[in-house]
Each structure stands twice: as structure tokens, then as C-alpha cells.
């Protein structure tokens, strides 16, 4: 398995105020630490026009991390493709991949907030055709040496499309394990329809809320930071529609329930318990795990302590079982 850390969104929230410049400096410092501790990936996240400065431009943010690291891969999770000119995006991403020795992963998603489309002069009705035509441009760039494409999708149709096109998915941390398993099977069906060779098949990924601790008070604090982080999604108005037997999670209208359900996805406990739960993902073909550790209200010393703990107690044991 491979391990990453996310989501870096560079926010200055009402609950954890700071200067934006400090957020970008912290990210570069943490990226160096993450690399030093042996993690493989760092993931960024994008939104637009939000009060807290939620990062609206992932390639410049990725460049700032890539320029101060040597081995770490940096992924956009997710860049909202329909809002961009794909030819310019492909040129910038390819340049960045070249500058960094091929360490950029270009994750793309569709977006869902009306204000973000409107601010960029795009009709939300056009998001699917723009996504498809944008992907075609990025796929040509990838074939010519551009960055590998990842996709963010949580519903059956887009997950199947990603499988057909041969792109790996990075599943949201809000998805319970069972929903990840269902969608992984959907992706596999799409992949099978693509008739690509097994050698080309990418491993899938998932963000996971996790906090390795056996201390009750620390566990409570970490779960509360997860809660506070998902309050952001209430503000953003995110809804995760139902898939089969898996319920809808509506952060805008059923805020408390959606957040409580998401907090329950958090993997906590001893190293053995964390490893047991992470192995479940490995068994269904999800080989990239991005620990979702950048949380609202979390002090930096707690984050650094958790990064070290997972690096010491979890990474070596899972890497030994399934070498990346």
C-alpha cells in the first residue's frame, strides 16, 4: 500500500483563524516533514469564493510543495475541471510534471456549487459535457508525458465512467467502507468494459479519517476535529446522494446527522486496530490511502505527533505485507 496525507485546503476558518500566508508556509513545512517520515503522497483540495480562502488554484499550490520536496508526490484532490480552459490546464500541469520529475497527480472532479460555476462563467448544466471534453484534452496530455489523471466520484455512473476510461478514483473520506466496496465493484465493471490490459490497471485510492490512539480524551478530541471539519461541508452545501442501500448524506439540510455519520467513519484505536481496518481497503483493491489528518481546530503539534505515530506504527507493517 501507499500512504498520503490530506486534504490541504489552506483555509483560515472562523474556528481556527490564521493568516493565509501562514497557511501556505505551514503546508510547505509539513510537506517536508511528511516526506521525511516516509509518506508517499500529499493531497490538495479546491473550492472557490469561500470566506476562509479555501484554495481556489491547486496547480500553484502544488508547485509550492513540489518546489520544496524531492520524492513526495502531490495530488489535486480534486481540481474542478469544468471551470478551467483544458488546453491551458494541460499545458500548466505538464510543465509542472516536468519540473518536478513526474511527481504531480492530476485529480479532477466536476464540482457542485452553483456559485463556483457562475463565478467562472460556466453553466452548471454544462458541467458533464465540459468534464468529458476536458478529460479528452488531459488524456492526450497524459499520453504525451503529462501527469497521471485521477478522478473524484462518489456515484455509480461517474465511477463506472472512470473505470471505462481507465482512471483511478480517490474516494471521499465521508464514504463508509461498505460504500467504498460497492463503488469499487462498479469501477471494476467499468474497467472490464474498457478491455484494457491488466498491466495498465491502476490501484484505487481513498481518503480516510483516522487517529491512532488508545487514549480516550485524545480520541474524543480527534473525533471532534473531524466533526468541525465536516461543518465546512454544511457551509459549502455538499450532499452525497444515496447509492443503492447506502443512505444519502446531506450536509446542508441534515447537517447534524450527516456529520455524525461521517465522524463514525473515523478509524481510531490501537495500531493493530487501525491496521485491521486499513487492510480491508487493501483487500478490495484500494491501495492508496490518504490519511485525512488536516482538521479544523487541530493544533499543529497534535498533527505532527499523529503523523509520526502512523509513520512509526502503521506504515512499515502494511508496506511489508503488500509492497507498493
Amino acid at each position: 500500500m501507499r500512504f498520503g496525507v490530506g486534504l490541504f485546503s489552506l483555509q483560515c476558518t472562523a474556528m481556527q483563524p490564521r493568516h493565509w500566508t501562514g497557511a501556505y508556509r505551514d503546508m510547505r513545512e509539513l510537506a517536508s516533514l511528511i516526506e521525511e517520515l516516509g509518506y508517499d503522497e500529499l493531497w490538495l483540495s479546491e473550492h472557490h469564493f469561500f470566506y476562509d480562502g479555501y484554495c481556489p488554484a491547486l496547480l500553484p499550490a502544488a508547485a509550492s510543495v513540489l518546489s520544496v520536496t524531492e520524492r513526495l508526490r502531490v495530488g489535486t484532490g480534486m481540481l474542478l475541471l469544468p471551470m478551467y480552459d483544458p488546453a491551458r490546464l494541460a499545458a500548466v500541469a505538464t510543465d509542472l510534471a516536468e519540473r518536478s520529475g513526474g511527481r504531480l497527480d492530476l485529480g479532477v472532479g466536476m464540482g457542485y456549487r452553483d456559485v463556483e460555476f457562475d463565478g467562472h462563467g460556466v453553466s452548471r448544466k454544462q458541467r458533464l459535457p465540459r468534464m468529458v471534453s476536458g478529460l479528452e484534452v488531459l488524456e492526450r496530455a497524459e499520453a504525451a508525458g503529462g501527469p497521471p489523471i485521477w478522478m473524484g466520484a462518489q456515484l455509480v455512473d461517474p465511477v463506472k465512467r472512470a473505470g471505462r476510461r481507465g482512471h483511478p478514483i480517490l474516494f471521499s473520506a465521508a464514504l463508509p467502507f461498505e460504500r467504498c466496496r460497492t463503488l469499487t465493484q462498479v469501477w471494476e465493471e467499468g474497467w472490464a468494459e474498457s478491455r484494457r490490459s491488466l498491466a495498465e490497471k491502476p490501484a484505487l485510492g481513498a481518503l480516510r479519517n483516522i487517529w491512532l490512539t488508545e487514549d480516550r480524551k485524545e480520541r474524543e478530541a480527534a473525533r471532534d476535529w473531524v466533526r468541525a471539519s465536516y461543518v465546512q461541508y454544511a457551509g459549502l452545501g455538499w450532499t452525497l446522494p444515496a447509492v443503492g442501500d447506502h443512505q444519502q448524506q446531506d450536509y446542508a439540510e441534515e447537517t447534524d446527522k450527516a456529520i455524525a455519520d461521517t465522524v463514525e467513519t473515523t478509524i481510531t484505536g490501537s495500531a493493530d486496530e487501525c491496521i485491521r481496518q486499513l487492510q480491508q481497503f487493501d483487500e478490495i483493491g484500494i491501495k492508496h490511502i490518504a490519511f485525512r489528518l488536516i482538521l479544523d481546530g487541530e493544533p499543529r503539534r497534535a498533527l505532527e505527533s499523529q503523523l509520526r505515530r502512523l509513520s512509526d506504527l502503521v506504515l512499515p507493517r502494511l508496506r511489508d505485507k503488500v509492497p507498493a
Binding site: D114, V115, F117, D118, G119, H120, G121, V122, S123, R124, K125, Q126, G237
Partner: peptide
Amino acid sequence: KVPAGLPANVTA
């Protein structure tokens, strides 16, 4: 025109 005020972006 920014924001564009496009009809489909109803909550913008």
C-alpha cells in the same frame, strides 16, 4: 459579466 448570472446556476 462576473458573476455570469446564468439561469442554470440557480443558487448563485
